[in-house]
């Protein structure tokens, strides 16, 4: 079914919207959840919660790209669940490593640059990513949006693992310089 037809089902408040969404994007959302949580049950719960959030969001929203809209909900829900689990010492997996890597992009404490709201920071990162070549941008997002492992990224782009690591390292360094150049601290 076309995305626009699925969105119409949400707007018409037809419950078939949920089954159609699960048929088309269930696997996509489960892989995002599993990358973050590394737990099948937790991932399944997050995906179910995603459909509920989508049901509540449409209407009034009418997303232009349904997959990204749903994936973002799953990612945020999974991230929140992972944080709770880490607080309870139950966590693990790829996310902590990804967060450690991202800490390289954070300005050192004590700097006086402007601290931005989350949305402004997202816009700055969006601008930065659009300056990158398509492949570098996608590799960065596979790692820090989809939370793919470095091995999976290397396989996806037919790279050696060290090459993938090297590309990610250089991109993080570029992001750090970009944010510093914009006078942004996180």
């Amino acid at each position: 079914m076309e995305d626009s037809a699925i969105i119409d089902l949400y707007w018409a408040r037809e419950e078939r919207a949920l089954s159609e969404t699960d048929t088309k994007y269930g696997g996509y959302c489960r892989s995002i959840a599993h990358n973050i949580l590394k737990n099948r049950e937790d991932s399944e719960e997050c995906v179910s919660d995603t459909w509920l959030h989508a049901w509540n969001a449409m209407p009034p929203q009418r997303p232009s790209i349904l997959s990204s809209f749903l994936g973002r909900i799953t990612r945020n829900l999974s991230f929140d669940r992972c944080r709770r689990q880490n607080a309870e010492k139950r966590g693990g997996g790829t996310l902590p490593l990804a967060l450690d890597e991202l800490s390289e992009c954070v300005a050192a404490p004590g700097r006086v640059e402007q601290a931005l709201e989350a949305q402004e920071l997202a816009e700055a990162i969006d601008r930065f990513l659009r300056t990158l070549p398509e492949r570098e941008c996608s590799i960065f997002l596979r790692r820090y949006w989809y939370v793919d492992s470095v091995q999976d990224i290397a396989a996806r782009y037919a790279l050696r693992e060290n090459t993938a690591k090297s590309i990610l390292f250089r991109t993080r360094e570029k992001l750090r310089r970009y944010l510093a150049g914009e006078g942004i601290i996180v």
């Binding site: 232009s64 991230f79 967060l99 920071l121 990513l129 941008c137 996180v186």
Partner: peptide, 14 residues
């Protein structure tokens, strides 16, 4: 915070 901000980049990039 950075991880969440990356989550809000453009749908087209994702």
């Amino acid at each position: 915070k950075l991880f969440r901000a990356i989550g809000d980049v453009g749908d087209d990039l994702i």
